[in-house]
Nucleic acid binder design. Structure first.
Lengths: 206, 206
DNA sequence: TCATATACCGTATAAATATACGGTATAACA
DNA sequence: TGTTATACCGTATATTTATACGGTATATGA
C-alpha cells in the first residue's frame, strides 16, 4: 500500500477530469462504463482503496459526491471568470452583452478581487505605460465602479477607445497621465469616462 | 418572461456557488432545504423556468447534473492549480511534498502553460529584475524541465535560495545576468541548478 | 507454502433522486 | 373580468445510485 497503481491513477485522473470539465463527479456506473468494468463492485473496490490512501473523498450515500483530494485542493480558492473584452463600449453599466473575446479564469485571492465585482480584462496595446512596467501584450484586469486612489492605473474612454493612464489628483482636480517620456500627455479626468481601475496584471511568455 | 425574478436569481447563484465550492451541483432536495421549500415541485418549477430562459442546463434523469450556463462558460478553459512555493528546495524532482504556501489557479490558455507540466510559482523579492519589468511582490509562474531560450528569465538556486536571472548563451556557454544596473553581476549557468523557466507573471494592486 | 493485496465478476437492495400529476394563492395585464 | 405567469403545497413513482455480500484469479512477499 505505498504508491498508486496504474489503474488507480487512471481512475483518479478520470474523476478529476470530469469534475473540471463537466462540473460534477461521475457516478459509479459511469466509471465502470469508461473502463469497461461489468461490475460496480470493481469500481467500489478501487474507490475504497483511493479513499483509504486519502486521495479521494466522498459523502456516504450521496450521489456523485466523489472529490479528488490533492494537496493543493485544500489551498484552492474560488475561481472567477473574467471576460476579456476587445474594447470597452460606452454603455457599460447594464447592457454589457457577451462581446467577450475570451475568458480569464483566476482565483480571487491571487488577484485580490472581490467576488461579484464588475471585473473585466483588456489586452494592452502599445508602450504608453512602460514607466509603470506595463508592457504591450500584457493582460490587465480592471474593476468597474471602484473609486481610483492617487497613482492608480485606470482605463479611460478616449476617442471611443479604452486607454490606460495613471490617475492622480492635483489641487482637488483629477488628472490622467501617460507613463512614457515620449508621450508626455496629460488630460483632465473629469471630462473623461473612467471604465475601470486596474487591480491586477498578467503577462505571459511570448 | 423578460428578466430574472429575485427568487430565480437566488437559486441560480446558490447552484453556481455550490458547484464552485463543493465541486458538484446540489440535488433538488438540497435546494428545497436551502430555501425552506416543503415541496420538490417548487424546486422543479423554478428550475424549469431557469432552463427555459437558457441559464441552466441539466441532463434528464441524471442526479446532480445541474449546470449554470453563463455566456463566459463556453469560453472557459481548463484551470490549473499551481503551487506557490516559498523556496525551491534542491531535491525538486521527485520528493516535492506539499510545502506549498498557497495555490494559484489560472486557466492554462491565459498563462500559455501545458497541462500536466511541472509548474510552480514564486513571489519575487527585491528589484534585481526591474530591467525586465518584474517588480518586488510580483508572482512569477515557472515551468520545471523546460530548456531556456536566449533571454528567458529563469529561477536559479544560489546559496540555497531561488533567485531570478536572465539566461543567455555567449560563445556556446550559458550565463545568468541580473537586470538591474545596481547589480551588474554575471555568473556561469552551468555551475548552477536552474529550477525553472518563467512562463508567466501575475501582479496585483498593493 | 501461506498470507495478503490487487483486480475483477454477478446479484441484490435500500436510499437518493428527478420528475409527473393535481392542486391553491397572488400579482400583472389586457 | 378573464388570462397568464410566478410561487408555492402534497403525494407518488420510476430511475439512478451507492453499497453490501459472496465469489475467482493473479501476483508478491514472508
Amino acid at each position: 500500500m505505498k504508491g498508486l497503481t496504474d489503474r488507480q491513477r487512471a481512475i483518479l485522473e478520470f474523476i478529476g477530469r470530469r469534475q473540471r470539465q463537466e462540473g460534477g463527479a461521475p457516478s459509479f456506473r459511469e466509471i465502470a462504463e469508461q473502463f469497461g468494468f461489468r461490475s460496480l463492485t470493481t469500481v467500489a473496490d478501487h474507490l475504497r482503496l483511493l479513499r483509504r490512501k486519502g486521495l479521494l473523498a466522498a459523502a456516504p450515500g450521496r450521489a456523485r459526491s466523489l472529490r479528488v483530494v490533492s494537496p493543493l485542493q485544500s489551498l484552492r480558492r474560488e475561481v472567477a471568470d473574467i471576460p476579456l473584452l476587445g474594447s470597452v463600449p460606452a454603455g457599460f453599466a447594464e447592457d454589457r452583452r457577451q462581446e467577450a473575446l475570451g475568458c480569464v479564469s483566476v482565483d480571487v485571492e491571487t488577484l485580490g478581487i472581490r467576488p461579484g465585482a464588475r471585473t473585466f480584462a483588456l489586452e494592452v496595446r502599445g508602450d504608453s505605460m512602460i514607466g509603470r512596467h506595463i508592457l504591450s501584450g500584457d493582460v490587465v484586469v480592471l474593476e468597474h465602479g471602484l473609486t481610483p486612489r492617487n497613482g492608480d492605473v485606470v482605463a479611460a474612454l478616449i476617442d471611443n477607445e479604452s486607454t490606460l493612464k495613471t490617475f492622480f489628483m492635483e489641487r482637488g482636480k483629477p488628472w490622467l497621465r501617460a507613463e512614457n517620456p515620449r508621450y508626455p500627455k496629460m488630460m483632465p479626468a473629469s471630462e473623461l469616462v473612467i471604465q475601470g481601475v486596474m487591480v491586477a496584471l498578467i503577462r505571459k511568455r511570448k
